[in-house]
Design a protein around this nucleic acid. Structure first.
Lengths: 136, 136
DNA sequence: TCATTACCCTACAAAAATTATAGGGAAATT
DNA sequence: AATTTCCCTATAATTTTTGTAGGGTAATGA
């Protein structure tokens, strides 16, 4: 399952992209327009800022805007920042690998092989930029 | 993430298939061989029996065996029995559809479109039978 | 028949992850 | 200086996951 956090993050980035004429946009505004709990959103935005997907400015006319070319922001990136691995089991994760400690030999584990293939296919679909997502 | 329950279920079915010469196999035996907590496994087996993936016989020489042709048991089936939807968001689930209640219009929701495509690809990979899984 | 083995069933509990909420501090603008 | 908005830590409520406990029921074999 995609977490609400991740879904909110994707919606937020899409929102910033599609409202680039009025950026920076305050968290409060995004929160109201996208129906995301304000404090929860702030927390998500902090993660996105830490990972330099978003940049912020303070003060009365402050808010958030994209920190880079929307063509360079992908859905996989956002999912990894917010939820961690895209893979369904950690032993086939590209960015968050962990041994499962169950199988004798990773190289011959059939479940691993299947979910390795699955992860590849998933990344193939999810490696879309925000621009591409916007045009779907 | 794939739950442990689902992973245990897949391992159990694979085990029953690959040990068809000694079936029925007791839950205790599977539990020991596959390192699955006994009572937890019983619970999983109950679900699998309810869904007629597995059949059981009681008494001292009893145990579990596959209830149908292993070519007709797929990984998606097992995941759906144990974890529910394969889809990462409920509004694109084939078998467990639920409205998200967030977007104005499902037909035009871009996130939905993306995760619909994702689910299709996932099912494409996961619709492998136990026989195919065994041969990976 | 009777002890043993193994499935069957309900309820509950511990742990982890998810989804927030609370309360205030710091910077920028007017 | 007052207002707005980002910034940060801590904690609480809820749900899901992962198991445990305890006993009942059917079949076998001595």
């Amino acid at each position: 399952m995609l977490s609400k956090r991740a879904k909110y993050a994707i919606k937020t980035i899409l929102f910033l992209f599609e409202n680039k004429d009025i950026v920076p946009v305050s968290a409060k505004y995004i929160s109201e327009k996208e129906n995301i709990p304000y404090k929860f959103l702030e927390n998500i935005l902090r993660d996105l800022r830490t990972h330099q997907v978003v940049k912020s400015t303070r003060g009365p006319v402050g808010g958030y805007s994209l920190a880079k070319d929307p063509n360079d922001i992908t859905v996989t990136q956002l999912m990894r920042i917010i939820d961690g691995p895209v893979a369904l089991i950690p032993c086939v994760s590209e960015k968050f690998y962990e041994a499962c400690g169950e199988c004798e030999d990773e190289e011959t584990c059939r479940i691993r092989k299947l979910f390795f293939e699955l992860r590849s296919e998933m990344v193939g679909v999810l490696n879309k930029s925000i621009v591409e997502l916007s045009n779907l």
